[in-house]
Design a protein around this nucleic acid. Structure first.
Lengths: 246, 246
DNA sequence: GTTATTAAAAATGTAAAACAAAAAAATGTA
DNA sequence: TACATTTTTTTGTTTTACATTTTTAATAAC
């Protein structure tokens, strides 16, 4: 830190940005969405009306709309007037995260390491806070899994649903968000790797998966926080090797 | 799942998208960046040249560029010809994730709970992986903090820098991202709350803050993983009440 | 009167031409 | 060579126009 920087920080100066009109328009609309003035399914004024409102040309307006769309904040349907404010989804985060993985800025092992400590926490919270309804929901998923003869794809879908339910039952909104964000890239790789294994190996993993889940749910029901933590760590470590050296 | 859906899935149909020319151009350029054909600091052709290459009008080209920019893949500097491919950074994930947190209106206590389990993990990783350089960096921050007489604002800035350094030294890219996303909303509230306290209370918290940090750094240096975990949990719990009932 | 068809209106998608502003490159001068 | 000025290039913005698609309204048929 230089002295100049300290002085600037103290005075709370900020670099002058937003010199582009389209960015300024983007900012204004974005803020109204962020602070709730514009809610999901609300319609923005049509392009022509936005021209009148902002007193700017149509290409400029359209560039702003393109940015909003790219950020996942609106969806534009031609013909039917006005862009529609979107319910923000995990995809808006999953996509750039996927980019980072593809460009090797994040190693999958780091992501998995991160997943382990997070899901361990979620399952602990769930063990503490689970309701009768939660238990029924999780039991149902496992029951369906057991009656399943099927392929890996469907099995992994149920596996994902089980973990997702745990995240939801943790009653922590951040847990849900992060779960959704992390899951996709990790699961994409795991599914691919699973296909490369022999049938015997696949069978082994399948049995392990279901046994692990059963134990975890038992511990959740018994609210055995320490045990559920250990079980989840073991469970995730069982499948860690599938994404190693990637 | 209906039978129709299953049939569609089996045939691997996908909805027809990309009807917009600007999106198709965006996709083409994005793919060249993702697969490495275009590397960071490479320059895209100028808008005029892109018009010739894609044989499309300028507004269409510009909308594609605006999308690429919005995704954090390029930066456009006026005058100096051509958009520059960006080194993809955590910011591309931080921004939409930040949007999500703001839009989901997550309760601060949930966010803080999430912060505790995450930062506890980060500090454990850091204790395991810290280098001599890491230690020096953290010692430096604490030294500056001790010589500081100042106000809460500067103190909290150093506090933030200490925690941020821990996240960075954890050598997990997700840790950095999540730290950056969580920090700001939590810290904004804490700073406001701190101002409402009496001078005596402020002094007490100030001393606690610095004592905690010293202990944590000691444990990091000694690579005492269990202890550092306890210390971080205690440290964050000391300040938890500042955001309660918010 | 109700329904189906058709035409009009409105909205987004795209194109072309023009000018402003700012940065880089080229030029000329000392 | 070093500097200042001019020219060129590039992005930012505006205006006008037309194509395409969807919605709405009007019209015709039953």
């Amino acid at each position: 830190m230089t002295r100049e920087n300290d002085a600037a920080n103290a005075l709370d100066f900020e670099p002058v940005l937003n010199y582009r009109v389209s960015e300024a328009i983007y900012e204004q609309i974005r803020n109204k969405i962020i602070n709730g003035e514009l809610k999901p399914n609300d319609r923005l004024p049509s392009e022509r009306k936005l021209i009148e409102i902002f007193r700017r040309s149509r290409p400029t307006i359209r560039e702003a709309l393109r940015m909003l769309e790219s950020a996942g904040l609106i969806e534009i349907i031609p013909g039917s007037g006005g862009a529609v404010v979107q319910e923000i989804s995990a995809a808006t985060v999953t996509q750039p995260l996927g980019n980072m993985i593809l460009l090797k800025r994040i190693r999958l092992l780091e992501l998995y390491e991160f997943r382990i400590i997070n899901e361990t926490a979620y399952v602990q919270w769930t063990a503490e806070r689970r309701t009768e309804g939660d238990i029924k929901k999780m039991q149902n998923i496992l029951k369906q899994m057991h009656t399943l003869k099927g392929d890996w794809e469907t099995l992994l879908r149920y596996d994902s649903e089980f973990h997702k339910t745990i995240a939801e039952c943790s009653r922590n909104e951040m847990a849900k968000i992060i779960y959704n964000v992390i899951t996709k890239p990790v699961r994409d790789i795991m599914y691919a790797k699973m296909g490369e294994l022999t049938l015997k190996q696949q069978e082994f993993h399948k049995n392990q998966l279901m046994a692990d889940h059963d134990c975890i749910l038992d511990a959740i029901i018994n609210q055995d926080v320490d045990k559920v933590k250990e079980l989840m760590i073991d469970h995730l470590n069982h499948f860690k090797h599938l994404i190693e050296d990637e």
